[in-house]
Design a binder for these strands. Structure first.
Length: 487
RNA sequence: GGCGCUAUCGUCUAGGGGUUAGGACGGAAGAUUCUCAAUCUUCAAACCCGGGUUCGAUUCCCGGUAGCGCUACCA
């Protein structure tokens, strides 16, 4: 039975790199019909925060992929200690009474490799027991084989055969002096206990894996299969951090900016993984079907965001934005409405679901992020148009007089035209001809009068949704503005 | 410093001993159109460097360089 896990440590918000790790694990589980385990690796009491736990769940919930089992490491400390004890009893670990952190100062700036604290490895069992019984605090360290020429090896599904001389591995801690397990111990102990079959995680753990293999062997278990993922990095190649790069690295930022979970997932999948058949836009099911460890790349991938960009659209990786637009276009009117309505309401506008349904075909091709609905369809939502420059009303190669003439004529025509696409089209084109104007010269003033700007959805559809009353009122206002501007 | 991983257009990537090195985003130009989009067409744009192996390397090997990771009683 295939079992994978996503094991975040709640020391910060859920960032895009973690989200991708979660997604790859999930995809692999679903592809293989396995089990997805969510495990909070919260053994670092000092740095864990409730806010972080919430942020992680918030992000994962938005992704909407779900998981099958859920655990918390802090509730499994007994198991960790039990395994540590077993390793100690086998003589594969020893007590290190060196006070915490003093080794650090000795080592700081040191150009030498630290492997273990002097004197501790060789302490006799008797002496060790005596000092422990006396209440002297100690950390439990793994006794890495030394001078035996041994090497530790494992096969990584992405990086291939990995070998490292045991002599190059330091005696890492299993238990802290306060009795809490370290990440290495807790993680491996739980992986064994939860019968995790595949560990898919960031490449920053590739070097740690040798230690983990040692623990798995010492604990009498078989090491799972490993698959390390290339890291997601910032445009300058540095690793993503909130402090350095701001909110663009947080999953909730994508949600709040109007990304669809499906496109966000799609985007992340394309970073460090490829279906190898040139597909870009993929649905959740297509991703499940296509996903494989073989498709994972080895080089770090840049998330091409722009810090301090003017608009959200410019902030995010252009490909993420494009994919989002692509997914939006793939939604039905009803599906899109369900996404858009809450955003419009939250912005303080009142729109009936029926009207929303009518508006969506006009803006679906024009929005890239869900929130764009607020700028793309604003004039549908308000009673009163915000002020605009009357000069905008003036058509190409025209003047204020022409604008006034167009609007006045439009008013007359629209007064007795049915507000449907075809009749509007015919009536307005006929009017343009009468006035000796090009269609564009006729439509532009009307568009601005009705939308408040030049760039907007197609005119006839827009008028149809707006209705005669609103249209007439706005044309009247435009005429008034023109008059005011002239004098 | 030690150990390790990586290296194809600006970015994400495909490919692989002989290719016009493919696709996508973004950029540029054009078509279409009532504006803006969408769509379509076209263009510019890459194998880190040096050795070796080979008839032939971007591809395989070695070295260099650069980037990244690990080197904590963080994860």
């Amino acid at each position: 039975m295939l079992r994978v896990r996503f094991a975040p440590s709640p020391t910060g918000f859920l960032h895009v790199g973690s989200a991708r790790t979660f997604i790859f694990n999930w995809l692999y589980a679903r592809h293989k019909g396995g089990t997805m385990v969510l495990r909070l690796d919260d053994t670092d009491v000092e740095r864990n925060t409730e806010a972080s736990v919430n942020s992680i769940f918030e992000g994962l919930r938005w992704l909407d992929l779900g998981w099958d089992e859920e655990y918390k490491q802090s509730e499994r400390l007994g198991l960790h200690q039990q395994i540590a004890e077993a390793i100690f009893q086998k003589g594969m670990a020893y007590r290190d009474f060196t006070p915490a952190h003093i080794g650090d100062s000795e080592r700081s700036g040191a150009t030498q490799t630290w492997l273990f604290n002097p004197g501790m490895r060789e302490l006799s069992r008797k002496e060790s027991d005596r000092r422990a019984a006396a209440g002297e605090p100690f950390a439990l360290r793994f006794r890495v084989p030394r001078g035996t020429g041994e090497s530790v090896r494992f096969t990584d599904a992405v990086y291939g055969e990995q070998v490292k001389a045991a002599d190059d591995i330091e005696d890492f801690a299993l238990l802290r002096s306060d009795g809490m397990p370290t990440y290495h111990l807790a993680s491996c102990a739980d992986d064994v206990d939860l019968r995790i079959s595949h560990i898919i995680r960031g490449q920053d753990h590739l070097s740690n894996t040798y230690k983990h293999v040692l623990i798995f062997e010492a604990a009498g278990g078989q090491a799972p299969q490993f698959a390390h993922l290339p890291l997601l990095v910032a445009p300058d190649g540095s690793k993503l951090s909130k402090r350095k790069h701001g909110p663009v690295v947080s999953v909730t930022t994508y949600r709040d900016a109007g990304f669809l979970p499906a496109s966000f997932i799609n985007f992340l999948c394309l970073l460090g993984w490829s279906p190898k058949d040139d597909r870009e836009k993929m649905t959740r099911q297509e991703l499940i079907d296509a996903f494989s460890l073989e498709g994972i790349n080895r080089a770090n991938a840049v998330v091409n965001f722009k810090e301090s960009a003017a608009t959200p659209e410019e902030t995010f990786d252009p490909k993420a934005v494009w994919l989002n637009a692509e997914h939006i276009r793939g939604l039905s009117i009803e599906e899109l409405s369900a996404q858009l309505l809450p955003i419009v309401c939250a912005a303080g506008f009142q729109v009936s679901p029926e009207k929303m349904l009518a508006i969506i075909p006009l803006i679906r091709e024009r929005i890239k992020l869900l929130r764009d609905v607020l700028t793309a369809a604003d004039f549908f939502f308000v009673e009163q148009l915000p002020p605009y420059d009357p000069a905008e009303l003036i058509p190409q190669k025209g003047d204020a007089a022409m604008a006034a003439k167009v609007l006045t004529r439009a008013r007359e025509v629209l007064a007795h035209t049915e507000f449907k696409h075809d009749p509007l089209d015919q009536a307005l084109r006929a009017a343009a001809q009468e006035l000796g104007l090009k269609a564009g010269q006729m439509f532009q003033p009307i568009r601005v009068a009705v939308c408040g700007r030049k760039n907007a959805p197609p005119l006839f559809e827009t008028l149809e949704v707006l209705g005669r009353e609103t249209t007439m009122a706005r044309i009247d206002q435009a005429i008034a503005r023109l008059g005011a501007a002239k004098s």
